[in-house]
Simulated scan of single mutants.
Amino acid sequence: MRTRILESSGWRGEGGAWCCWGDSILDNGAYTSGGPQVAAQVQAVLPDGWRCVLAAVDGATTGDVPRQMGDVPDDAAVLVLSAGGNDLLMHVNVLDEPATGSAQVLARLAELADGFEVDYRAMLRHVMAAGLPLVLCTVYNGGFPDARMARLAATAMAVFDDRILRVALEHGLPVIELRAVCNRPEDYANPIEPSSIGGEKIARAIARVVAEHDFTVRWTVIYT
């Protein structure tokens, strides 16, 4: 496998593949109404000799990601991982659960976040075993048209995204903060999937990280 190292003055090396793992944030072709999906938009910004390999699968959870490792080509240079959103969707009913007080609500969120962190760490161990430069993504807030639902979702999401950031800091991994990237209604094809407009912003963020980040040093930089 060829590891891609980038300099501030531009690209160097012989080329290779950027691999996108995870869920429909990267595999969003079914939701773009015929428009390009994120992988094609990443490919459009790559220099000659480089290609984007989509291993992400719509609907995948953190538990599914290790099975995507078989799709990593021998010339893989950078891995981009976006996972966790579907794990959280399985617990979306927590927003409507009855509670006797704020302490009960916070305790329930903490319990779910603890479980999510265990699963996320298990996934990351498999991904990092590839020994390649790795970029993580947070989970965005979504494009909920109902203002109350949007506010509740964003508040709950902060608890889970904090766990992703915590893990990234421990391992010195760069992070794309998708809550800041997809921050307008037109970035979403529906409440939980990115549109081609949002996908283009995600693709540009991916390209920026790979072009600017120094993967030879283990340090966490948050990219928007």
Rank of each mutant, 00 (worst) to 15 (best):
A60L: 08
T61Y: 03
T62I: 07
P66A: 08
C52F: 05
A44L: 08
R51H: 08
A40C: 11
R51I: 02
V57T: 13
V45S: 14
T61G: 07
G63H: 01
T62A: 13
V45T: 14
G49E: 11
D58G: 13
T62E: 07
C52M: 14
A60W: 02
V65A: 02
Q37M: 14
P47A: 07
P36D: 09
A39F: 04
W50A: 04
T61H: 03
R51N: 02
R51K: 14
A56S: 08
D58H: 03
P36C: 06
L54I: 09
A56R: 03
V38C: 07
R67K: 15
A60V: 11
G63I: 00
D58N: 14
A39S: 13
Q43P: 06
A60G: 10
G59F: 00
T61I: 07
D64G: 06
A39T: 12
V38I: 12
L54Y: 07
A60C: 13
V45L: 15
A44I: 08
V53Y: 01
T61M: 12
V45Y: 03
C52I: 09
P36M: 04
G49V: 07
A39Q: 10
P47Y: 00
V53P: 00
P47L: 02
P47C: 04
V57K: 14
P66Q: 07
R67P: 14
P47K: 00
D58A: 12
T61P: 04
L46Y: 01
L54D: 09
A55D: 02
Q37E: 15
R67A: 15
Q37F: 15
G49S: 10
A39G: 05
V45A: 14
A55N: 10
L54F: 09
Q37V: 10
W50E: 12
A44M: 08
P47H: 00
V53K: 10
V53T: 12
Q37W: 14
V42Y: 01
A60K: 06
A40G: 12
D58L: 06
G59R: 05
T62K: 05
Q41F: 03
P36F: 06
R51T: 08
A40N: 13
D48H: 12
P47F: 00
T61Q: 12
A56W: 03
C52V: 12
T61F: 02
G49Q: 05
V65P: 03
P66S: 08
D48C: 12
T62W: 09
R51Y: 00
D58S: 15
V38T: 09
V42A: 06
L54S: 09
V53R: 12
D48W: 09
A40I: 04
A44F: 05
T62S: 14
Q43N: 14
V45K: 10
G59D: 13
A55R: 10
C52P: 04
T62H: 07
L46C: 05
A44G: 10
G63F: 00
Q41G: 03
P66G: 05
A56G: 06
R51P: 00
L46F: 02
P47I: 03
A39Y: 06
V65N: 01
C52A: 15
A39P: 00
R67I: 07
A60Y: 08
V65C: 04
V65S: 01
P36H: 03
G63P: 03
Q43M: 11
G63R: 01
V42C: 11
D58W: 01
